[in-house]
Write a protein that binds this DNA or RNA. Structure first.
Lengths: 189, 189
DNA sequence: GTCTATAACACGATAGAC
DNA sequence: GTCTATCGTGTTATAGAC
């Protein structure tokens, strides 16, 4: 287990507070208090509040992009690709539920990195949609509006951060299996 | 068509801004600018920023409670009750997409009304879960973890506010039909 | 109903001592 | 690496003129 640096400690504490109240409502004094130090001391480890948000969101966004690229390039059927997307979301979210809250709810407060984030998100959604459309073409998936299927699946997967912490009795594997059944078998032919 | 009072105009403008940046990131000066007046003038129509949030969220929450009570009391099958819940969400969201953003994302910034809001939400979810559980008992719905089904459906329905404005080509009816198919026929036996 | 002016306080961030 | 002190600015909200 890698030793957590002070900077990482600050970022993880910030992510937890951002999840509870959102980026804008959390002050540097709140964050310092949660760390047991004074606000001024934070600036020995981070450059700005904005920098914390950037580190939380961009690292996760790039993780999703990397996972999606692996899935896209694979030779699996479209149904299995969709199942692998479910697993990707469950895994990343289970590893960092707090950070996922910022990614979902506070991305619009990114400054310098906003365009980059939006680019990654748009590409991700386009790849996701493409798999659904291909699945319909090959008759793996029921004839239905592919954008509504995408919307429905993404809504559920993006909300996982709210739900995984409440259900830690359920293993990641069980959750991925249950979700795949509900999200994918429902749309399969 | 009822004439919009100045107060309602402020609340609707605020809801639009809250959707874009969240309650905490929107200042009274932002709101005043969007209304074409000065911040101080707002206080002739509303008591506080907090009051605006309260009016946006509580009115919608009570609308959901009212709709759910009607569905719960009806003699419909559980499948039809679920379909009526989908329709309830589509209708309320289509009528007030901006307000739905505050309900979903800024409820934690409620002060005096926070407990009341949480009570309404918990009762709503309990009723929703009960219908799913009854549906499984009567074999209308596939044997599956009822809480995961609830989570998946609610995630999609709660995200509608993001999606309805982009798809105004689709009528409310078509959307409800498509969503019912994807959300319910997938879980039906 | 809107304005200007301002009170009272919170914010992010920096300087410099230890 | 943390502290105290503080700068400059932004925040909600009020007072009182028009």
């Amino acid at each position: 287990m890698k030793q957590e640096t002070r900077k990482e400690e600050i970022i993880n504490t910030a992510a937890k507070l951002f999840k509870e109240k959102g980026y804008s409502a959390v002050t540097m004094r709140d964050l310092a208090k949660a760390m047991g130090i004074k606000a001024a001391s934070l600036y020995n480890h981070i450059n700005s509040k904005q920098d914390i948000l950037k580190e939380i969101i961009i690292s996760i966004a790039e993780e999703f992009t990397k996972g999606m690229n692996t899935i896209t390039k694979s030779n699996a059927t479209n149904s299995i690709k969709l199942r692998n997307i479910v697993i990707l979301h469950v895994n990343i979210t289970a590893k960092n539920t707090n950070g996922m809250a910022s990614l979902n709810n506070d991305w619009m407060h990114l400054e310098d990195q906003l365009d980059y984030y939006l680019k990654l998100r748009n590409e991700y959604e386009a790849n996701f949609l493409n798999i659904i459309e291909q699945g319909i073409l090959t008759s793996e998936i029921k004839q239905n509006n592919p954008e509504i299927i995408l919307f429905s699946m993404l809504s559920t997967l993006r909300s996982l951060y709210l739900w995984i912490p409440k259900k830690d009795g359920l293993s990641g594997n069980d959750l991925a299996n249950n979700l795949s059944q509900i999200l994918i078998e429902g749309i399969n032919t």
